[in-house]
């Protein structure tokens, strides 16, 4: 993990010149796909993500139907050209995991009981990956769901924090993710500050974790403002 050959922090600044509590540039646009019920395009640093929502629609296979609530299905996929070495297309262990944690996070907010027996399909397509794609994908998916007009209790806002070169920083970039000591992606409900996703890769002490958590929640709150602005634009469905 830790690679001493790469100096991740120079003169109190990170590799790309950011401060420790500074996010990369984020841009979100809702309603980019004509045929989807809801969609969003997100740029987060060098990440490029499209999320699409279809439904509520008929659920097949039928044994998955639940007469008390809808079923939320999420598919996270990285395009073969999204990373430097070609990614072998198709689901793998990592994308199945991310699909699952994303679906679990979204099930906390979507009012599934309004659409019994139906399915809400969420597709997250990573066109270009540069660390933090599960957060980028989840943030885009939440905007796409709101754009589709599906009733939700809140949006889902996300951010990562981590440890690089003995410093706890927010929103890791690609090198920081690859050569850093730890990575903590979180997703929160911004108005209630409830946690719907929390993972940790690497080792942090209790104090470092608390600091990383604070930083990530602050970052997610900033992401929420961008999500809000993207949804406030009426028209251009």
């Amino acid at each position: 993990m830790a690679n001493k050959d790469i100096e991740l922090i120079k003169d109190g600044k990170r590799l790309d010149g950011r401060r420790f509590d500074e996010l990369r540039n984020i841009k979100i646009k809702a309603g980019v796909l004509e045929r989807a019920d809801g969609s969003a395009y997100l740029e987060w640093g060098k990440n490029r993500v499209i999320a699409a929502v279809y439904g509520p629609r008929n659920l097949h296979p039928k044994f998955l139907q639940d007469p008390t609530k809808a079923y939320l299905r999420c598919t996270y996929n990285m395009a073969a050209f999204s990373v430097e070495d070609r990614k072998r297309p198709g689901p793998d262990r990592r994308s199945v995991e991310i699909s699952k944690v994303t679906a679990d996070a979204l099930r906390c907010v979507v009012m599934l009981e309004k659409y019994p027996n139906a399915v809400i399909d969420v597709f997250i397509e990573i066109l270009q990956a540069d660390a933090g794609t599960r957060c980028a994908g989840l943030a885009a998916a939440s905007v796409a769901l709101a754009h589709a007009g599906i009733p939700m209790k809140d949006l889902v806002s996300t951010c990562t924090a981590g440890k690089i070169g003995d410093e706890v920083v927010v929103d890791l970039g690609k090198e920081e993710d690859n050569y850093g000591e730890a990575d903590v992606p979180i997703a929160i409900l911004p108005t209630k500050k409830e946690v719907v996703l929390l993972q940790m890769d690497g080792k942090l002490t209790r104090e470092e974790f608390d600091k990383a958590y604070e930083l990530a929640v602050d970052g997610a709150t900033k992401v929420y403002e961008i999500q809000k602005a993207a949804l406030a634009m009426v028209g251009g469905n």
């Binding site: 019920d37 709101a146 754009h147 589709a148 007009g149 949804l231």
Partner: peptide, 20 residues
């Protein structure tokens, strides 16, 4: 939902912009 808030008397409702 995402929509337009309508207020009448002491009651609020939201008219969705898009939706199923």
């Amino acid at each position: 939902v995402r929509g337009m808030a309508r207020i009448s008397d002491n009651t609020v409702s939201v008219i969705p912009i898009t939706g199923p």
